[in-house]
């Protein structure tokens, strides 16, 4: 954990990724859809930024755009500084030299992210040969060492296997190993454990924590699972309908959430240690449809505290507890306290 903790998204000297005013639009048959709107975030060395959101929140598209991986009908505007390079204007060659090398991404779908007809070891050594110019022998040694580090038993034997011969947990570990091979400054993990069983999830999360702490890698953890974020993130950004609605220190987000959406999310997640009996708390309504967003606050149709001012889009502004929130109301704490 970095000593100088900052909650606001101000770039500092140890900033690895600095996203400013990112907007992502998709051209679809039914018109243009704005998946991410005017989003600003930074992540520093050795820091884990958790991105929490549901479907349609734009949490994945933000970072696909960041690494130039948008689908053909997508367009990103704004500024994404990675070191000295603006990733949005960088050419394909620059992006290729960064992706998988200085910035790595681990996806949810570990089955399709590996080429099925190539041995695992070969796929990993290729990364090193391409980015680091190692010869085959040195690359293989480095790969075996990395597979061992991600706790893959019998790495020499697994390297000779094809992806389908490995279990889901092992494949995800191979993907992480692949991402870490070049000791990236930034690791983006998009729902890295969603497709895995809980017992395997724990291993993968430990692994990511280890990478962050011992290599000082900046980690962006994208997930819908609040428990995963609670265990790993230093700061958390909560996204809704393409915007950050709350940003803050992990302890503050979980103990004193400021935005009604964050409060609702925490209240409606069933936990192993909560009180039983009665109904679960819910957030009414459906997740936002990006093609039919209300003009003001996107969460307003589902919000219990909506007032007239919610018809205007709320800006992201400082909130109690030192974080940021995109909500016009400052009196929520007293209301929720009175209610409970």
């Amino acid at each position: 954990m970095p000593s100088t903790r900052k909650t606001a998204d101000v770039a500092g000297s140890d900033t690895v990724l600095d996203i400013q005013g990112l907007t992502v639009r998709f051209e679809t048959a039914d018109g243009e859809v704005q998946a991410v709107s005017d989003l600003s975030l930074t992540v520093a060395k050795g820091e884990c930024l958790g991105i929490v959101g549901e479907s349609g929140s734009g949490k994945s598209q933000t970072f696909m755009a960041t690494l130039g991986l948008l689908a053909d009908n997508g367009r990103a505007t704004g500024k994404v500084m990675f070191g000295d390079a603006d990733l949005l204007t960088a050419n394909e060659a620059t992006l290729n030299s960064i992706r998988g090398n200085r910035a790595a991404m681990v996806f949810q779908d570990h089955m399709t992210s590996l080429t099925p007809h190539m041995k695992v070891g070969r796929q990993l050594t290729e990364v090193l040969q391409r980015h680091r110019g190692l010869d085959a022998k040195a690359a293989l040694d480095a790969v075996i060492a990395m597979l061992r580090r991600v706790q893959i038993p019998e790495p020499e034997r697994r390297a000779e296997m094809y992806p389908h011969e490995l279990s889901g947990g092992l494949r995800q570990r191979v993907m992480i190993a692949m991402g870490l091979l070049c000791h990236p400054e930034l690791l983006i993990a998009d729902e890295p454990t969603t497709a895995l069983d809980v017992t395997v999830q724990a291993l993968i999360l430990d692994l990511i924590r280890d990478v962050k702490d011992s290599d000082n890698t900046a980690v962006i953890l994208i997930t819908h699972d609040l428990g995963v974020v609670a265990g790993l993130a230093d700061r958390v950004a909560v996204m809704y309908a393409g915007r950050v609605v709350e940003l803050g220190d992990v302890n503050q987000i979980f103990s004193e959430p400021q935005h009604p959406y964050t409060q609702g999310l925490l209240a409606c997640s069933p936990r192993l240690d909560d009180a039983l009996g009665g109904k679960l708390k819910t957030i009414p309504g459906q997740p936002p449809n990006l093609q039919r967003l209300p003009p003001g606050c996107a969460f307003a149709p589902r919000c219990p505290y909506v007032i007239a001012a919610c018809a205007e889009r709320p800006p992201l502004r400082p909130a109690a507890g030192g974080g940021l929130k995109a909500c016009v109301r400052d009196d929520l704490a007293s209301i929720t306290k009175a209610a409970s």
Binding site: E32, Q34, G285, P288, N289, R292, L293, P294, P295, A298, A300, P301, R313
Partner: peptide, 11 residues
């Protein structure tokens, strides 16, 4: 402008 894009949130 976003105003042109949007319609009521709840169908």
């Amino acid at each position: 402008t976003d105003v042109n894009l949007v319609t009521p949130a709840i169908p």
